[in-house]
């Protein structure tokens, strides 16, 4: 009976023939799989970026308001005008503060999820972190406008708790205050932190999860206190995740143009500047030059992170 079995099974149809072709020429499959995404990435994605870069080296004719398609650095020089530099510095400060705050708040949450949460608690963690991402960004921002408004719950609670005068004094502060939380840079900051938080928590949690529990035990075993183990083992090993998270919060804050428009004192941020220069002002070259700023900042940031050894543990 056994001897009746054929050595080679019969071909069942075109699917088997195709499988045979792919088996004999593995490269063919690779090329077929990679061509569409590479076309997308190369042409649509990088192509539009190149077009943007090109625009930034053009300038606008101040008289006619038309774009002059000739190479010049004049547009970049405009970035260094006081009011433009102001926009860049304001955005940068906001992005740094949002990133640092997000990291500090996200760490314990990510640490809990990575180290202790199991089964149902883990599902609850993912749900809790992701749920806000499922609802519309605009709805959330407007909801926060109500929460932070003068008649909103935060002010009401502060007054109830007797902290009303304290809040009032804080809002009187020159460089971050306003008539209410929703019209002050503090409000912008709070909403930024809220909106981008999941992007910090998730990579952080993934990085912390990759640190084996035995490594923490080894640190304690060798005499390290909790603080020492945190500084010498957890933090360095979680750093790639923290940097990944901070890339999200940092770059998303750098480029956002909606939150500062709805919440805050209408001081301009880079995103808003890009939006206005390419729209109402019709100054596409300056908008492009502004758009290049976050790219450059991110490149510098990554270079610093690399130098600090953020990617050593990868």
């Amino acid at each position: 009976m056994l001897s009746d079995a054929p050595a080679v099974l019969p071909e069942r149809g075109p699917a088997d023939r195709l499988t045979a072709v792919f088996w004999r020429h593995p490269r063919v499959l690779l090329v077929l799989l990679l061509t569409p995404p590479l076309l997308w990435l190369g042409v649509v994605y990088l192509g539009s970026l190149a077009a943007l870069l090109l625009q930034s080296f053009y300038s606008i004719d101040e008289f006619s308001g038309l774009v002059v398609p000739e190479f010049t650095l004049k547009t970049y020089a405009e970035l260094f005008r006081a009011q433009n530099l102001d926009i860049i510095l304001r955005t940068l400060t906001m992005a740094v503060l949002v990133t640092l705050t997000s990291a500090v708040i996200a760490f314990p949450i990510a640490y809990f999820a990575a180290r202790f949460a199991r089964g149902r608690w883990k599902a609850l963690f993912y749900l809790g972190v992701m749920l806000p991402l499922w609802s519309s960004y605009l709805v959330k921002v407007y909801a926060w406008k109500l929460i932070l408004a003068r008649e909103g719950i935060v002010t009401w609670l502060a007054e109830r708790a007797g902290a009303g005068p304290l809040l009032g004094r804080a809002l009187d502060e020159q460089w971050f205050g306003g008539s209410s939380l929703s019209t002050s840079p503090v409000g912008t900051f709070i909403v930024f932190v809220y909106i981008w938080m999941p992007y910090m928590i998730l990579p952080m949690q993934a990085a912390l999860e990759r640190v084996p529990g035995s490594m923490l035990e080894a640190a304690a075993d060798l005499g390290a206190s909790r603080g020492q183990a945190f500084r010498t083992v957890i933090l360095p090993l979680a750093l790639p995740g923290i940097v990944a998270g901070s890339i999200f919060t940092f770059s998303l804050t750098l480029g956002d143009y909606i939150i500062p428009q709805i919440i805050g004192n209408s001081a301009r941020f880079i995103g808003l500047a890009v939006y206005q220069f390419q729209g109402t002002a019709g100054n596409l070259p300056l908008a492009a030059a502004f758009a290049v700023v976050p790219i450059v900042i991110m490149l510098v940031y990554l270079a610093i992170a690399k130098r600090l050894g953020a990617f050593d543990a990868l």
């Binding site: 035995s214 490594m215 080894a218 304690a220 075993d221 005499g223 206190s225 010498t232």
Partner: peptide
């Protein structure tokens, strides 16, 4: 961390960084 005994872990748990 205050017990003067040390462990060789099954997976060695060496610090990769």
């Amino acid at each position: 961390n205050r017990r003067n005994v040390n462990t060789v872990f099954q997976d060695y748990a060496l610090f990769p960084h």
